[in-house]
Simulated scan of single mutants.
Amino acid sequence: MSVMPAWVALLVAAGLSACSTPSKPPALLQLAPATLGQALSLQQRVTVDRDGQQHTLDAVLEVDHDQLTLVGMALGQRVLTLHHDGTQLHSHTHPLLPSQVQAADILSDLQLALWPAARIVEALPTGWRLDATPTTRTLFQGQQRVAEIHYTAQPPWLGRIELHNLRYEYQLTIESAMQEN
Rank of each mutant, 00 (worst) to 15 (best):
Q144A: 06
L70W: 00
P98I: 07
L16D: 04
Y151K: 01
G15Y: 03
L166A: 06
P25H: 04
M4Q: 13
T138L: 14
E175F: 11
V146D: 08
T35V: 00
L172H: 08
H90C: 14
Q53D: 10
P33D: 09
Q30E: 00
A59W: 05
P155C: 02
A27C: 05
S20E: 05
A18P: 04
R45Q: 02
T173A: 10
H150A: 10
D58C: 12
I149T: 06
D58N: 10
A74S: 15
M73Y: 08
H150F: 14
A177C: 10
E62Q: 01
A103R: 04
L97F: 00
M4A: 14
M73I: 08
A34D: 01
T136A: 11
Q102T: 06
I120C: 06
S41Q: 08
Q67A: 13
G37T: 03
T47M: 15
R129M: 09
Q154T: 09
Q67K: 15
A6P: 13
L40A: 02
L16W: 01
M178W: 10
A147P: 07
F140C: 15
Q144Y: 02
A177I: 06
K24G: 02
L16F: 04
E148Y: 07
V48R: 05
A27V: 04
H65K: 10
L110R: 09
V63E: 04
P98W: 05
R129T: 11
E122R: 03
F140I: 14
Y151E: 00
T135A: 12
